[in-house]
């Protein structure tokens, strides 16, 4: 990890760990927990889009696979939740390979449409054949580990954010490794990357799988937190939300993905007053952030800070 990254890392996660002690009531905690779950998905999309340059409008598909597979395996097959988690991640990874192979040749808009189609297919499948159909199902066991059940909002908050800390440490190291360099090179020039010995098609599959696994873990964490899921949580709107998180926070920064996830998760709480117009307001926020802060929040703040240092 680079020095600056290490400092941000320590500062941010210290804040995260003391944060609950300044809160009253479980409502705020549960919003913060959702923000953590969304961060997980957003980090995956950030690596896929911001670093590898592959568009995806289908992250809700992987998110849904994670939630449904883990919930169904733990309810209907009595699998321990930890095991159903990894099975869900594996299912999502396999679906990512199936999606990535035909999508390899696609770029930009075409890739966006293909991934969007994938998300819709998953949505239709869980809507038609998922337990409870469109109305979903409940009684999903809470996440538990070595006999400890995470059934309080506070314990789940720590579960999510400590997981996120590990995921973040892993992701930062990944981005700065040889693998990460190859991802970024592919973003800049696939031809040169290929000529330099990067197996571009295989790398694309790998990064799709990575983002799918992150989203699946997010979905499984979600299912075993709310204990009731229905297809509507995994629609195209969710894919768009994840995209917004990454874009608003800054697509080239992993920290941006977390910042964006927190902002977009909090927004509905703030936008309560707009009621049914909230989608409209979401749209306006996305458009204006594209127009006015097209680099995203975190990269802009970092730039400002750097300029500030130079100025003094």
């Amino acid at each position: 990890m680079q020095i600056t990254n290490r400092r941000i890392f320590l500062a941010f996660f210290t804040l995260v760990l003391v944060f609950p002690f300044f809160l009253e009531g479980s409502y705020a905690l549960s919003i913060a927990t959702f923000a953590g779950i969304n961060s997980l998905i957003a980090i995956g999309l950030c690596i896929l889009m911001g670093y590898a340059g592959q568009v995806s409008l289908g992250q809700a598909g992987f998110y849904g696979i994670g939630a449904y597979v883990s919930a169904i395996l733990s309810i209907n097959f009595g699998l321990p939740v930890v095991l159903s988690f990894f099975m869900a991640a594996a299912a999502s990874a396999i679906s990512a390979v199936v999606l990535a192979i035909p999508a390899l040749r696609l770029k930009g808009h075409y890739l966006a449409v293909a991934t969007l189609g994938f998300g819709e297919i998953i949505y239709v499948i869980i809507n038609e054949w998922g337990p409870g159909g469109p109305s979903g199902f409940g009684d999903i066991p809470k996440f538990n580990l070595f006999g400890y059940v995470f059934n309080t909002p506070l314990s789940y908050y720590f579960l999510i954010w400590i997981t996120l800390m590990l995921v973040m440490a892993f992701s930062i190291n990944l981005i700065n490794s040889r693998f990460g360099r190859a991802l970024r090179s592919m973003h800049d020039s696939e031809i040169a990357s290929n000529a330099m010995g990067v197996d571009v098609p295989t790398l694309k599959i790998k990064v799709f799988v990575l983002s799918a696994v992150y989203a699946a873990f997010g979905g499984a964490f979600y299912a075993h937190y709310v204990t009731f899921i229905s297809p509507s949580s995994f629609s195209l709107f969710q894919s768009v939300l994840v995209l917004m998180m990454v874009v608003v926070g800054g697509i080239t920064s992993l920290w941006g993905a977390i910042a964006g996830a927190i902002i977009i998760t909090l927004l509905p709480e703030i936008l309560r007053e707009f009621k049914e117009y909230d989608i409209l307001v979401y749209g306006l926020i996305l458009i204006s952030s594209l127009l006015f802060f097209n680099k995203g929040l975190v990269p802009i703040i970092i730039e400002r800070l750097k300029k500030g240092y130079k100025g003094t």
């Binding site: 360099r181 090179s185 800049d188 020039s189 031809i191 000529a195 330099m196 010995g197």
Partner: peptide, 28 residues
């Protein structure tokens, strides 16, 4: 066999050092 492609096709968002290291990607 190494190629310096038409239009250079550098990894323009990466540092000079990273570009060079990517040149040896296959040999790491």
């Amino acid at each position: 066999i190494s190629l310096v492609p038409e239009g250079r096709m550098l990894f323009s968002h990466l540092t000079v050092r990273d570009n060079l290291h990517l040149g040896a990607y296959a040999f790491f």
